[in-house]
Design a protein around this nucleic acid. Structure first.
Lengths: 370, 370
DNA sequence: AGAACGTGGGATAGCGCTTTCCCGTTTCGG
DNA sequence: CCGAAACGGGAAAGCGCTATCCCACGTTCT
């Protein structure tokens, strides 16, 4: 009968090329206390620890320059001090302002921020959520306009749902879908108010230069403008562009100018400030002076809006505030938020939309910085 | 004698309010294979696995919608698929452009990005690095001008050094300090070239409106401008402002105008584009027409630079590219980079700096978008 | 034919931490 | 005074993975 090992035999300890970071065990050893005590001190747990021991642990940790391994902590605790933020791109003042607010809140909550760029690609948005979920974050914030008829929406929702069922918090910083909850700029109302304000300045026929109608944000703003102008007897013509950016604004406006249809409108309402800036350039290239020959409006109030000439009339949203609020909501201990919080914007009438010729100037300049 | 438990007794399994996520054990069980096999399949390890087993594992994982717990994986592997980026603020096109590049590279490397905002506060920068280090990331990228005489620099370097000794990669996206290595815009050369270009357009007396001289970036740009102008017989006057932003540019310029010293210069070189925009506003407020009465230049080529009137002359840097390169370098397996890579910029002469009166126009417009 | 391999699979030590148990001391109330 | 409760400390069981061993089978050499 062959010699049978007992199964309780000793293995050679793994030769892990140890990362070289001091561990809690090192700290405990140096302080001459147990692992448990060291842990309790460093996490100021509910369990009280004697003064001597406390100080020795603290000193040992300082001397070793100990840093808790967050992964290990996450494993033991079952949750990581992480908040994940998904944005279309970070290189856009709209998203970076939101990100700034999110980061501020996370910092206050002692939570780390993980950021994922989705590049306005819903497939990538989905894979990002999947990867991120592996981090077992406390919350996932998804930022970026929802898209109507998006084939990945179902899977995204499933992913988010499974996440929340496992105890995480998910929130959209855009149109809410499938009961997930949202905090977002109130595009509809903002646009309506802008439309009304434009009409009050004497404009009646607006060209709405914007992105693809499948973008929920575009749809909301367009409809808002329509209603706002309609409330004063005005009307809109929609000019959709392929992209929702500066170049898109330029191209669409260019077409409008070249086709001569520009003569039919007295105000050009762009889908966002970038498009407005592009539109103004296209107008000038067509020999039309924005702010004089035609009024122009944007949306969002990016920093540039106040720096271009003429200063751009737009709708301001407290984006950082929105980001902060969303993060606060996601990180706070109370019941998960599943409602739809629409944060109001503020119409900023500036030089690009002066009182129309033949209209009594209502007086009052606005928006000059600093 | 009281009944003595043996010490080998059975404990009640911890009643962890389990996070509810399916684990690899669940997958293995459902597939009817061992944990080891499941792991091998899901990580396509070197060890081959039979076709049957492979498929069953894959199917089980799919059915359970299994997501690897990255913390657990990080623990077992000893390293987390994470890259950390520290920026002063994300709500600034300079940093967000860099962040965009970093994120792109990280995505290509299958690595998650963690972002920390330091709010231009070196104390917070330090604590951020300390926290981040707990994540055991593969690399830490520190972005934001170094500050001369900063009291926290020593500790920051110590932290970074310990990190690299433990196998991590650290890189500055600014001036390198203490042998840490850097990838950054070549401010010095860019500024020198800008100074020379300005001089070539016929300007000789420049006011350099910029931030605190203790900011290394400010010092580099100022010195570059000085040398560039000096090479053509020009000279500079430094006007330092408290802040390195739009408002700082406005205030400093305002003082210059009110004191009358503005009459002594023919070009105003701002420390960055924001300051330049603020400066232009201050000039106008003082009845001086930027681009006509005086030339103005900026630095960085933020999007706004091409949208203001007159279009701003500036130095363009491929910021996203810089971010991407830094991340690539930090994530690539080869030897750690400890050198100082200076990425060149490109002078963009635009309308804010036309050929000076009495100078032969060298011809050629530039920088019109799109 | 027997030994030496090659293969694919399973069992199982950790990874660094938290937290539950358990136990010896004190401190009290009755 | 004595039993009960409070207190502070330590041992150790996991958390969900990875990777190392070990083993049971074929295969392929001599």
């Amino acid at each position: 009968m062959p010699l049978q090992r007992t199964g309780q035999d000793r293995r050679k300890p793994r030769a892990r090329a140890s990362s070289g970071n001091p561990t809690l065990t090192d700290v405990a050893a140096r302080a001459g206390v147990s692992l448990a005590t060291a842990s309790r001190v460093l996490n100021d747990s509910a369990r009280r620890v004697g003064q001597d021991h406390r100080e020795r642990v603290l000193r040992a940790a300082r001397e070793l320059n100990y840093r808790t391994d967050l992964s290990a902590q996450a494993m033991a605790r079952g949750t990581a001090p992480v908040l994940a933020l998904l944005v279309s791109t970070i290189d856009d003042p709209y998203f970076s302002a939101i990100a700034e607010g999110v980061a501020a809140s996370a910092h206050d909550h002692g939570v780390i921020v993980t950021i994922a760029i989705t590049a306005r690609d819903s497939a990538r948005e989905l894979t990002s959520v999947r990867t991120i979920r592996g981090q077992r974050p406390r919350a996932i914030l998804v930022c970026g306009s929802r898209i109507e008829g998006n084939p990945h929406t179902g899977e995204l929702l499933a992913e988010l749902r499974q996440f929340t069922e496992a105890g995480g918090r998910a929130l959209f910083l855009s149109q809410p879908v499938g009961g997930v909850g949202a905090v977002r700029p109130d595009n509809a109302t903002g646009a309506r108010e802008l439309g009304a304000a434009v009409a009050d300045r004497g404009y009646r026929r607006a060209a709405v230069v914007t992105g693809a109608a499948s973008l929920a944000t575009v749809a909301e703003r367009t409809e808002g403008l329509r209603r706002g102008l309609a409330s004063r007897g005005g009307e809109i013509t929609v000019v959709a562009s392929d992209t929702f950016d500066r170049a898109g604004g330029y191209r669409a406006t260019r077409r409008l100018v070249e086709s001569g249809r520009i003569a039919d409108v007295d105000v050009l309402c762009a889908g966002n400030d970038f498009m407005a800036v592009g539109a103004m350039t296209a107008l000038r290239d067509g020999g039309i002076d924005p702010g004089r020959d035609i009024a122009v409006t944007g949306f969002n109030d990016i920093a540039t809006a106040a720096d271009v000439t003429p200063q751009l009339t737009t709708v301001h949203f407290p984006l950082a505030e929105i980001g902060r609020r969303a993060a606060d909501l996601a990180l706070d201990a109370t019941a998960p938020h599943t409602g739809d919080i629409c944060v109001p914007g503020q119409v900023l009438l500036r030089a690009s939309c002066p009182p129309a010729a033949g209209t009594r100037p209502p007086g009052g300049a606005a928006g000059r910085r600093p």
